[in-house]
Design a binder for these strands. Sequence first.
DNA 1: AAAAAAATTAAACATTGTTCAATAAAAATT
DNA 2: AATTTTTATTGAACAATGTTTAATTTTTTT
Lengths: 231, 231
Amino acid sequence: MAKNIKSIQRREREREELREQILSTAMSILVSEGYDAVTIRRLANEIEYTPGALYSYFKDKDEIVFALVVRAAQHLNKVFQAQESLPNPLERLWAIGRAYLKFAMEHQEYYDLLFIMSTPIQKISEAEFSEGYTAFIILRQTVGECMEHGYLPRADADVAAFALWSFVHGSVSLMIRKRLAIIPEEKYHDLLEGAYNFLMSSMMPRHHKQSETTLPKPFPKLKHSQKSKKK
Amino acid sequence: MAKNIKSIQRREREREELREQILSTAMSILVSEGYDAVTIRRLANEIEYTPGALYSYFKDKDEIVFALVVRAAQHLNKVFQAQESLPNPLERLWAIGRAYLKFAMEHQEYYDLLFIMSTPIQKISEAEFSEGYTAFIILRQTVGECMEHGYLPRADADVAAFALWSFVHGSVSLMIRKRLAIIPEEKYHDLLEGAYNFLMSSMMPRHHKQSETTLPKPFPKLKHSQKSKKK
DNA sequence: AAAAAAATTAAACATTGTTCAATAAAAATT
DNA sequence: AATTTTTATTGAACAATGTTTAATTTTTTT
């Protein structure tokens, strides 16, 4: 008898399910216990297989982590796309920035993975990673429209988008990686809020600030602050 | 006979010398081969001791790494202090920002250690780390003076300094941690230069740009880009 | 010269990610 | 239905990491 297609399909489906289970387990551990807890043996335990088994589902750990990065990126993209309905580009720019800050502070582990950690970086540059560009493209588009409307000085859209991205990324990076010991932690929320308004208003002096209801207040407590080996 | 003070002094001096040798070796490996190459066994090899011996000079690896962080901070502080002679606060602000970018791109390993990596973070928050504040204090002071002269909108100096720091930190972080795959690498220098001018000029529209001779061009090649386990 | 103190080593431990021959399970073939 | 082939999984090992500790060597003091 020739190959049983039904069997093959079922096998592939089951493989896909296990792959998914590995990833969702990894996501769950990442969020609840931090990156250092996401270990091959730990994952194997949780899915009730042996460590070696994972290697028939993923080439190596980086491939697992990269899959998490993709998910984090998709998450962020949804957040960004939700702002695209705003017709006024200036409003949209403010909203995008706030959404970015909110995403970063509410999902610090994803954010870290996505924009700070170096582990899965080879893949990011090598493999196609279109998910990683979506948010930037939306930002650049919005920045361009702001220029057309005179809300921002005319300049290369890549450059201006990079400048604004750098600012929000810098803010949350310094917080997530705890480089603000000089400032008392209870001021962090006002600091982020204040810096955002200050910089954005300074750049666009003609135009009023947006409502301030978007940012979560207070920020979620920073978790697993003990020993982290993230580089 | 009572304790031989000369001997004790010599011993302490020799201990201090070996400590210093460990740190300078670590610095050298860090710069030439990247953080992942800075390993206890590697250090032991280079100073021709056994791995365990290092533990009578440093409590653990974090203590070594933290010592490197302190040195990196001192390096940055010197760079900042060199700008303090500029009498005009606006000029000083521009100069400080450029010096920061230059430091980051010319000493990416130090920068990473100082502001991105999470390894020695416990110490940074726990121990006194006055070296870590100096640069920020200079920035804040300059920002304050800029406000007094009307170069910047009046606001909380902490907030404004944090905003500007966030921007430059974000820029170099995205580069160092390679999150700009969407942009061709040969544009990086212009991107950094352009974003800096764009943002700074936008915030201070009345005032002209500074000379552009400070930033190195082109940036040093990114090293050891293979597999890095930095988190 | 002997005793005490300090420094260093050697060897182990626990934890990582990873590989691979052996085995078990499932599917295809006769 | 029994056998062969293919696939999946295990178990055990490997190399590399940081770290600890008893034993040993070296240095200092008595």
